[in-house]
């Protein structure tokens, strides 16, 4: 079966800094790839290059067999590559529903269908009761949920997520983990997830890639990568000794419990 994404020898420099060096990997449909690595290892640059915000200096990206080099970010989004950011970038003065609808401004989707899709996705992430609120009134964690739901509006085949679990309430994190799994299993969406929350990432991803200084230094199952000496060295600054990468995942919760505990209001 043709991979959703095929990356070959991708390189990107910023002046003298090598952000990506000959990065290659493939992603099968309906799978989750975890991307780990110390700060500055090139993870976010890789996401920015995959969704067209940066142009690679060399190498090739193929999405569903099609080269993406000359496609702009909005074209990639409409073709099915969505993205979330480390700090949720919602449109603050627009309502929650309006945030969901604007990605379809150029898509040939009937207004009623778009509204229905937005309603379903907001229900999916537990934000249906906040539809008419300005996005600025949501908590940080809820903004991450909104950004995730917005990323699904264009019915993507691939979602790139940058630190989705960082700094969010544990119950929102659990809900997000659960919804990512559902989107993967029921909608066959593929994910590339960058995270420093390694236990959570290991609970989701079948394959992990570890980057350091713009290069892939290890890839394989969570177990293989977490025990890889180069990975341990990259995180600890030296090889050998006991592996310090915690691998026990947090447990999921139901979608409604956080909001019920929060009294039904954004915190």
């Amino acid at each position: 079966m043709e991979p959703v994404l095929q990356v070959d020898s991708l390189s990107k420099r910023f002046g003298s800094i090598v952000a990506l060096e000959r990065v290659s990997f493939a992603l099968e449909a309906g799978t989750i790839l975890g991307l780990i690595g110390p700060n500055g290892s090139g993870k976010t640059t890789l996401l920015n290059t995959l969704n067209g915000l940066y142009r690679p200096d060399s190498g090739e990206i193929r999405y569903l067999g099609r080269p993406t080099r000359n496609l702009r970010p909005h074209q990639l989004a409409l073709l099915g590559i969505s993205r979330t950011f480390q700090n949720a970038r919602v449109f603050h003065t627009l309502t929650v529903t309006q945030n969901m609808l604007v990605p379809l401004v150029h898509a040939r989707v009937h207004s009623a269908e778009a509204q229905e899709r937005a309603r379903q996705l907001l229900t999916f992430v537990g934000l249906e009761r906040y539809q008419a609120l300005p996005a600025s009134e949501l908590s940080g964690g809820q903004q991450k949920l909104l950004e995730f739901a917005r990323a699904l509006m264009t019915e993507p085949r691939l979602v790139l997520m940058d630190e989705p679990f960082g700094g969010v309430h544990p119950e929102i994190k659990a809900l997000l983990l659960e919804r990512i799994r559902e989107a993967q299993q029921e909608r066959q969406v593929s994910f590339i997830i960058v995270s420093h929350e390694i236990p959570d990432l290991l609970s989701l991803a079948r394959t992990i890639i570890c980057m350091s200084y713009g290069r892939i230094i290890a890839r394989g199952s969570p177990q293989e990568v977490s025990e890889h000496p180069d990975v341990i060295a990259a995180y600890l600054g030296h090889a050998g000794g006991q592996a310090q990468i915690q691998t026990s995942p947090s447990s999921p919760v139901s979608s409604s419990s956080y909001f019920e505990q929060a009294g039904g209001h954004p915190s």
Partner: peptide, 15 residues
């Protein structure tokens, strides 16, 4: 309005 608030987020959303 979305574009005026966050250009990159607008672009990667499909705008």
């Amino acid at each position: 309005r979305a574009m005026s608030q966050n250009l990159d987020a607008a672009r990667i959303s499909g705008i």
